[in-house]
Design a protein around this nucleic acid. Structure first.
Length: 750
DNA sequence: TAGGCGAGCG
DNA sequence: CGCTCGC
């Protein structure tokens, strides 16, 4: 059931082949503007113009880039990122020496003895940078879908249509970057104005990623996700390629096997092979009905579409992660004690991450991989259970050690469910996972709160993007607003689609955007009311001077001047800046720390200087920003790098946090002999056997916990001693301001 | 191929 | 909760 109900609706150009497609227009993931434009020009052209413009971004050797940013001295040496015994990726200096991804350390060392290795098992920095990229893209357009840590799809159809509408000269088109199978495609540009514009936008976004984050990457521009992804890698590092509809068959023809199709993995490949299907052509010629027998209707159709380069799947905004997990693999763990220790290790880091996230997990899962002669690799087994509320609350409240102490027995219980410890066992992997992540509602009821507004709608379980109260940057502000402005901006989104006007505060900018778009297409730039103003653009990259944009210093009609006056100067500037009129930035009506609610329903007026390639550089690359980040990064750590003839391992692990140290201490103590007295009964759901396996200090914590619970039961009003003298309200505020549970947490430096 | 994730389906 | 897929 790949794409559930929305059968064969497509906005694909169909490519010299079947006319079997029914349902031409109908539903529209695409914009009304696009649909209208298409409908208008439809009768003349047979291959209807591609409706969507999709970009696929793919960062170059992502982990290696992150490490090179962290330590610029690594830029010029062959660098490999090591996880366990393999190099998961390496920089391009290393690739010149013949190194590849997923090469074993030993092989890599043979090829390149001078290689520098950096441990990459802790993904924290990669995760953070990854979300920065997504967040950055989100500030230009809500339709961003993550694919792993280093790839993003973006549906820029609306941006393109907006620019197209502003474009006067239709024969001035050209492409930015490569055009697949064309060496000079100027003449083609006029035939594919949307893709041409898309290529410029992709270039601008790549540039903004580079200037703001210091990352390079590739992009593919095409009419659907499949094609965008396939084409993005054609010119490899740091380049981009656009695929025109007339070249779809070319690129599909280059795929050497079905396995190369995104969405066709190992298993599917094997099943196809069993049918005698190996090449794309094989599958093209294979009768659909036979394929249906093997894969079922939807999957069969999807496969058929894929080989044709047809992909109607929408770019689905990813939002905050739906689960957080932490795992480690190893040669062998065969004792309960070993399992216990590893679980504690994993839980410590996972709970820490969960706490930063801010949401409260409702489900805990333990996964193991058992060694066996057959099936030596793969085959994981897992067990899961609900997380009692009081434990979940400890995670979000920051009592991490307590939380871990109480999660450990849960985990061990699950372990005994999945592994029969009466016989010998041999584990090669342990994974702990929190899922069913719920936004903390103020006071269980949560009525009337902003949170309830956010979480009540439609299906509460699906992609809740969390509300976040202000990060209270007022407390830290006063410092330059120039530092990382974009991420501390507010988003003021007027949701004409709902009754309420939501004013979202700083860190939630992206999720606010996400929310808005999930429900409907965002109406950040109101298309109905007083219509969109023309947007000024200057030429890509080549015009850092934004002063040529004449800004009318007049407030947008719907901004209350009184309120405006109260805003910090920086914010006022932003409100007046051309950024607010630019469609690219439209998803984010950004200002900085804001204590007043402002509704913006129209754009400031700006000049009419037109040119089609273009974001105003000012909106894309605040100069102060790109400078500061790079400079500081480069200055640090030039020296930590110790060159050597032999391979060098640079350990970038951060210092262990204190909690883990204490856990290890606990392990060294002798076992606690616990009294069986009635004073300290186990709660009914506690397995004594499991309990007895726990480290003494954990046992003690649990017991005191239970005692307290008893007290609480007996005396309901009693609060736990020592904890928080704060009122509930204060707690909430403190909690929320200290960690907003949103995307921001995933890139916020910790 | 083997690592540390993550998503979605049934 | 296992499986498949993705990077």
């Amino acid at each position: 059931m790949d794409n559930s109900e929305d059968d064969m609706e497509d906005d694909e150009t169909e490519w010299k082949s079947s006319f079997t497609d029914s349902a031409p227009p109908s539903s529209a993931t695409t914009t009304t503007a696009a649909a209208a434009a298409a409908a208008g020009s439809n009768l003349s052209k047979i291959p209807t113009p591609a409706h969507r413009v999709i970009v696929h971004f793919d960062l170059d050797c992502f982990y290696a880039q992150v490490e090179m940013i962290r330590n610029p001295a690594l830029r010029d040496v062959p660098l490999g990122i090591q996880q366990k015994n393999i190099i998961v990726t390496c920089n391009y200096v290393a690739r010149e020496q013949g190194l590849t991804k997923l090469m074993s350390i030993t092989d890599a060392m043979e090829k390149c003895p001078q290689m520098v290795l950096v441990k990459g098992e802790d993904l924290t920095h990669y995760r953070e940078m990854s979300y920065k990229v997504t967040e950055l893209l989100l500030s230009y357009c809500p339709l961003v879908e993550r694919l792993g840590f280093d790839e993003n799809y973006m549906d820029i159809t609306e941006i393109v249509e907006t620019r197209l509408a502003q474009t006067l000269e239709s024969n001035s088109y050209s492409f930015k970057g490569h055009v697949y199978n064309h060496f000079s495609a100027e003449t083609k540009a006029a035939d594919h104005p949307r893709l041409a514009l898309g290529s410029y936008i992709a270039a601008e976004l790549r540039e903004v990623i580079h200037s703001k984050l210091g990352l390079t990457g590739c992009a593919g521009v095409a009419t659907n996700k499949l094609l965008a992804k396939l084409v993005s890698g054609t010119f490899k590092p740091n380049q981009q390629t656009t695929l025109l509809p007339e070249n779809v068959s070319d690129i599909m023809g280059c795929l050497s096997s079905l396995r190369k199709l995104p969405g066709v993995g190992h298993q599917t490949t094997k099943r196809l092979q069993a049918l005698g299907l190996v090449s794309l052509k094989d599958l093209q010629q294979f009768p659909l009905t036979d394929l249906v027998r093997e894969f079922g209707g939807p999957s069969a159709q999807r496969l058929k579409n894929l080989v044709l380069g047809v992909d109607d799947s929408p770019v689905t905004p990813t939002g905050a992660p739906q689960s957080l997990s932490d795992e480690d693999s190893f040669k062998k763990i065969s004792s309960t004690k070993g399992v216990l220790e590893k679980i504690q290790e994993l839980l410590n880091s996972l709970v820490g991450r969960m706490h930063k996230d801010g949401r409260q997990p409702q489900t805990f899962r333990l996964t193991v991989r058992k060694y066996s002669a057959t099936n030596k690799w793969f085959s994981r087994e897992s067990r899961q259970c609900p997380i009692p509320n009081h434990i979940g609350q400890k995670i979000t409240s920051g009592s991490s050690d307590d939380a871990v102490a109480q999660l450990v027995p849960l985990a061990m219980k699950l372990f005994h469910k999945v592994v029969d410890t009466s016989a010998a066992f041999h584990l090669t992997l342990l994974n702990v996972c929190f899922s069913n992540l719920q936004t903390r509602g103020p006071a269980a009821s949560g009525k009337g709160s902003i949170t309830s507004f956010f979480s009540h709608s439609t299906s509460p379980t699906k992609t809740q993007i969390l509300s976040s109260q202000s990060q209270d940057d007022s407390s830290r502000s006063g410092e330059s607003h120039h530092t990382d402005h974009r991420f501390s901006t507010h988003s003021m989104i007027t949701q004409h689609t709902s009754q309420k006007t939501v004013t979202t505060k700083s860190p939630s900018s992206s999720e606010a955007a996400l929310r808005g778009f999930k429900k409907k297409q965002s109406t950040v730039v109101p298309r109905e009311g007083p219509q969109l103003r023309k947007v000024t653009c200057s030429t890509v990259g080549s015009d850092p001077d934004d002063t040529n944009n004449t800004v009318t210093h007049r407030l947008p009609p719907n901004v209350d001047p009184e309120v405006f006056r109260l805003l910090p100067e920086e914010i006022q500037k932003e409100l007046l800046s051309p950024a607010y009129a630019n469609s690219l930035t439209s998803s984010l009506m950004a200002t900085s720390s804001l204590s007043a609610s402002v509704t913006v329903t129209d754009m400031p007026q700006i000049s009419e200087n037109t040119s089609l390639q273009c974001l105003p550089p000012s909106t894309l690359v605040p100069q102060s920003l790109s400078e500061s980040q790079n400079v500081t990064d480069r200055k640090e750590a030039v020296n930590r790098f110790v060159p050597s003839d032999r391979a060098t391992t640079v350990n970038n692990q951060r210092p262990r946090d204190t909690s883990s140290a204490s856990v290890e201490n606990m392990m060294e103590e002798g076992r606690l002999s616990f009294p069986q007295s009635s004073d300290c009964e186990f709660p009914v759901n506690v397995d004594p056997e499991v309990f007895s396996e726990l480290p003494p200090s954990v046992q003690r914590e649990l017991m005191s916990e239970w005692k307290q619970q008893k007290l609480v039961l007996k005396i309901p009003a009693l609060r736990k001693p020592g904890k928080s003298l704060m009122t509930k309200d204060k707690k909430e505020k403190a909690g929320k301001s200290s960690q907003a549970n949103n995307l921001l947490n995933y890139f916020k430096p910790s």
